[in-house]
């Protein structure tokens, strides 16, 4: 498990300086909106697939520290991964969110939310981008 200070550092770094934050007009990207019923986070994801690979992802929107950082971290982790790998990462991430055993090596920086299951009001925030990703995957697979 990552040290508590390191976890916080990762989150704050990705919150204050999120990567890949940009609105994309290119129609080849699948755009999905992801938000939560209980909080006010509102994020758009732009995902570009190339055959079985996630070639590129961007995001934009207004959201709290947890969901903004979780989005930035997720995108960093997923760029260039195959859809199969992405699905495996989704599984591992959700195991972690529930406080279960998970593969730390695969999740890399995303392990900074290892403790989030203790904060009920933040679980929704940490899963927002991942729910968006699943929507985009569905949409891509339905198009095929």
């Amino acid at each position: 498990m990552l040290d508590a200070n390191l976890r916080k550092e990762i989150i704050m770094e990705h919150y204050l300086n999120p990567l890949n934050r940009q609105t994309i007009e290119d129609k080849n990207y699948i755009k999905v909106n992801t938000n939560s019923e209980t909080c006010i986070d509102n994020i758009d994801l732009y995902v570009l697939f190339d055959k079985d690979t996630i070639k590129d992802i961007y995001f934009n929107g207004e959201a709290c520290a947890i969901s903004t950082s979780a989005t930035s971290i997720m995108i960093k982790l997923l760029k260039g991964k195959t859809i199969k790998e992405a699905k495996e990462l989704i599984d591992e991430y959700y195991k972690m969110i529930k406080g279960e055993e998970h593969n730390e090596e695969l999740l890399e920086e995303a392990c900074c939310y290892e403790d989030i299951y203790k904060q009920e009001n933040r679980i929704g925030c940490a899963t927002i981008p991942w729910r968006g990703l699943m929507k985009a995957l569905d949409e891509y697979e339905n198009r095929k």
């Binding site: 909080c39 006010i40 986070d41 207004e62 959201a63 709290c64 520290a65 903004t68 009001n121 933040r122």
Partner: peptide, 8 residues
């Protein structure tokens, strides 16, 4: 700072 973070 996002409003929700202030509330949390």
């Amino acid at each position: 700072i996002f409003a929700q973070d202030v509330a949390v």
